[in-house]
């Protein structure tokens, strides 16, 4: 088990190192000069340009040798300094991102956990009821094939625009100030429902189909047949099948994290929900590269932490990994 976690941590450490290095390399080796494009966005008198270029190069440390720049980058990164956001008038990037992070996490964590739980339960039930199965399969495929933002758009259009049940955009009403009151909590919740619902639905379809297929496969396995032949109650057989079928679903959760994060980002854009997705769109539109790279690093760190949590869950669920046998290939 120590070897299992050691290996995982090595991979995650390397991944972080590679991701951070990519982050450092891209603006420096890509065609085009970030300082130039920064200046071209503001109208600057032509005679001032060389001075400004020198100023910015010194500010960002671009006049130092590359290895020195690279060390500086790690130094400031480990101090939590990700630069300053141009579009948020020079606020530190870390501060801007930390302000948006609770919204994204508040959306993602419940959506992931609830859809995983409900999808697995539902898929397991559907696997043994023909009429449910016939309904679940097509709906599941449609849901899991729908692009996240399109489902979000449809939810926003039907529930928000046509039926007018929930507010379409924002994290809370502009009329309210964030505070610890009932009115604000209710308002926050009303704005949360639709983005949550659309994320939940897309993921739910995928988990339900996966579980249904796994259960059918497991019920066909030798151990299930043997139990059946022994005359074990079908509830018991199904419980064993469920325990085995849930393992690939845990692995699947780790594999899906990237897609889920992408889905959350675009869903937030649809609803103008004030999380990382909306911030990302603003960073792209304003060519705010520090902010963009900061979001990239936060997404990477978040995904790595989530991966590690999934690894722990896998060990808890699969006793084979605990006694050092094979099995945990998550």
């Amino acid at each position: 088990m120590r070897r299992y976690f050691g290996r995982k941590l090595l991979i995650y450490g390397l991944t972080f190192f590679v991701a951070a290095t990519i982050n450092w390399m891209i603006p420096r080796f890509m065609p085009g000069d970030p300082v130039q494009s920064l200046l071209s966005r503001h109208q600057v008198a032509p005679e001032a340009v060389p001075h400004l270029i020198a100023y910015y190069n010194a500010l960002f440390g671009l006049d130092q040798p590359l290895w020195q720049q690279y060390l500086n980058f790690w130094g400031s990164l480990l101090n939590g300094d990700l630069g300053r956001s141009v579009y948020q008038s020079g606020r530190p990037v870390t501060e801007v991102i930390l302000a948006a992070l609770p919204y994204t996490l508040g959306l993602l964590i419940p959506a992931i956990l609830l859809s995983w739980w409900a999808g697995n339960k539902f898929g397991a039930i559907a696997a043994r009821r023909r009429y449910l199965d016939n309904a679940v399969l097509p709906i599941g495929y449609i849901l899991s094939a729908a692009p996240y933002m399109w489902l979000a758009i449809m939810v926003a259009w039907i529930l928000g625009s046509v039926l007018r049940i929930f507010p379409i955009s924002g994290g809370y009403s502009y009329a309210l100030e964030p505070s610890l009151t009932w009115a604000f909590a209710v308002d926050l919740f009303a704005h949360w429902v639709m983005p949550f619902l659309s994320l939940f639905m897309v993921m739910f379809g995928g988990w339900a189909i996966g579980m249904r297929n796994m259960i059918i496969y497991e019920l066909d396995a030798d151990y299930s047949r043997y139990l059946d032949a022994l005359g074990a109650p079908s509830g018991l057989v199904r419980r064993y099948a469920f325990r085995n079928a849930v393992l690939p679903q845990v692995t699947g959760l780790a594999l899906q994290l990237g897609v889920i994060v992408a889905g959350a980002l675009v869903t937030e854009i649809v609803f103008s929900y004030p999380g990382l997705g909306k911030l990302l769109l603003a960073a792209v539109q304003n060519e705010d590269y520090f902010l963009l790279q900061g979001i990239f690093l936060f997404v990477i760190i978040g995904t790595l932490i989530a991966n590690f949590l999934v690894d722990i869950a896998y060990v808890l669920l699969d006793p084979r990994t605990r006694v050092g046998m094979s099995g945990g290939s998550a």
Partner: peptide
Amino acid sequence: LVIPTIALLVVV
């Protein structure tokens, strides 16, 4: 595999 595709694509 661990790096979210979309994040990588966005920066690049």
